Simulated assay, not measured.
Amino acid sequence: MITRSVDRDALLLWLGSRAGLLVATVLGVPWRVYADRWQQWDAGLFVTIARYGYDGDPAGTPDPGLPAFFPGLPAALRLVHLVVPDWAVSGLLVSLAAGAVAMVALARLAELEGARGWIAVLALLLFPTAVFLAAGYSESLFLAFAVPAWLAARQGRWPEAALLAAGASCVRITGLFLAVALAVEYVTSRAPLRRAAWLAVPFLPLAAYSAYHYARSGDWLAWKHAQEAGWGREMVWPWQAWRTTWEAATGGGDHAVAFRMEIAGAVVAVAALVWLLALRRWSEAVYTGLQAVALMTSAYYLSIPRALLLWFPMWVAFAGLATRRRWVIAMYAMVAGPLMLLATTRFLQGGWAG
């Protein structure tokens, strides 16, 4: 039975970690400068879309990569910006609120699966790339829809699950993988056929977004082509992607560390996928496996460690293990915690952090 203490523990961990992160990163930095430091990499691109749309800043150079970002977070930024004049602070507030929802849902999901909810939350918050849950990125907002959607599905509340998954599909292309996994969960759980039509709902935002860009530019797959134009992420065979990444990681240069992080993330991703398959968590394996295939057939590995934040089945499985063997979470915290602080420092200094 899920009790109020589960929600309380999740919120305390989330808010406490945010307070600790603030103290660890704000000392000696003026607030105005501090807020701007969070506008690194994609955070600035989300603000650009929120302010000007997908054509970008009319006074700047056109960015062909903007359609790669789904409209959910830019829409949330515009809404918050109605009352918060600073765009950087708006992004931080969206992630703060969305993260609270996501952590409560993750704790409840873990408890439903027989694990301790606070362990799942703590493991996620200590993961080396957890800085992106705090920054003005889309990870927290996606999880705020995706984890409650999965929780609803596991409880047999399919209309609610479908509507929440549709919200996730507005935020990231990962919503497509969630929609497919929900269909697998529906079949394997032997849910009543009369509710099967709800499974189409999470695909509708994806169709609408494609139609929008077709009307705008004549390109049904603008989000995919934007990945290729902005980051060179064309689909290749997995061994080609591995070779390109390995050469970049071992060849020295400014980006070698970043590619080593990507390789480490890929190893964790494969191990987690094998683990879920061994546990016969078929629908969860579909959700994570589709992401793994997409990430590891790109021209080179990019953002794999950050994508692992979205693998909520992995965090629930980890919580199940650590619930039985408490030393696991202690050892994990001692290793992952310092790495998380290091990655946070890298991000705030403009370095690639996953």
Rank of each mutant, 00 (worst) to 15 (best):
A322P: 02
A322R: 02
Q240I: 15
A292W: 01
M261R: 09
L273I: 06
S283L: 09
Y300N: 02
R281K: 08
A285T: 09
A278W: 08
W242I: 15
E247C: 12
T297E: 10
R306N: 15
A294Y: 15
A319L: 10
T245N: 04
M296V: 00
A272D: 05
M296G: 00
P313D: 04
P305F: 06
L279G: 13
A294V: 14
Y300M: 04
Y301S: 00
R281L: 09
G253H: 04
G252L: 14
S283D: 10
L290G: 12
W275S: 10
G265A: 13
F259H: 15
E247S: 15
L277Q: 04
A299F: 11
L321M: 06
G289R: 13
A294T: 12
S303L: 13
L273Y: 03
Y300R: 06
D254E: 15
L308H: 02
M314G: 10
S303T: 15
A278Y: 03
A249Y: 02
V257Q: 08
L290C: 08
F312W: 12
D254N: 11
W282M: 07
T323K: 05
A307M: 14
M314P: 01
Y301V: 01
V257W: 04
S298R: 14
M261H: 08
G265W: 00
V274A: 14
A307E: 14
H255C: 05
A319S: 07
T323E: 03
I329C: 02
Y300W: 11
V328C: 03
L273M: 05
W246Q: 05
R325T: 03
A256H: 07
D254L: 10
A272C: 11
V268S: 05
V268Y: 08
A307W: 02
W275T: 09
M296N: 00
L309H: 01
W239A: 15
Y287A: 03
L276D: 00
Q240A: 14
V316E: 00
E284N: 08
R243W: 12
T297V: 14
P305I: 13
L310Q: 10
Y301Q: 00
D254S: 12
A241Q: 03
L276T: 06
G252Q: 12
M314K: 01
R325L: 02
I304M: 04
E247H: 14
R281G: 04
R280H: 11
R324C: 07
A249F: 07
Y300C: 01
V268D: 04
H255N: 11
T245Y: 00
I329Y: 03
I263L: 15
I263Y: 02
R326C: 05
F259A: 14
R280M: 12
L295I: 11
V257C: 06
D254M: 08
G252H: 12
R280P: 11
Y287D: 02
A292M: 13
H255R: 08
R243C: 12
A272H: 02
L295N: 03
A271S: 09
T323A: 07
F318E: 00
A258P: 01
W282T: 11
F318V: 09
W311V: 04
T323L: 09
F312K: 03
F318L: 10
W311S: 08
A258W: 06
R260F: 07
T244Q: 14
V267H: 02
S298Y: 11
V270K: 04
W311T: 03
V286I: 14
P305W: 08
L310S: 10
L290F: 04
A294N: 11
A258E: 09
W246R: 12
T244K: 11
Y287C: 01
A264Y: 03
T323S: 10
T288Y: 05
V270G: 09
D254A: 14
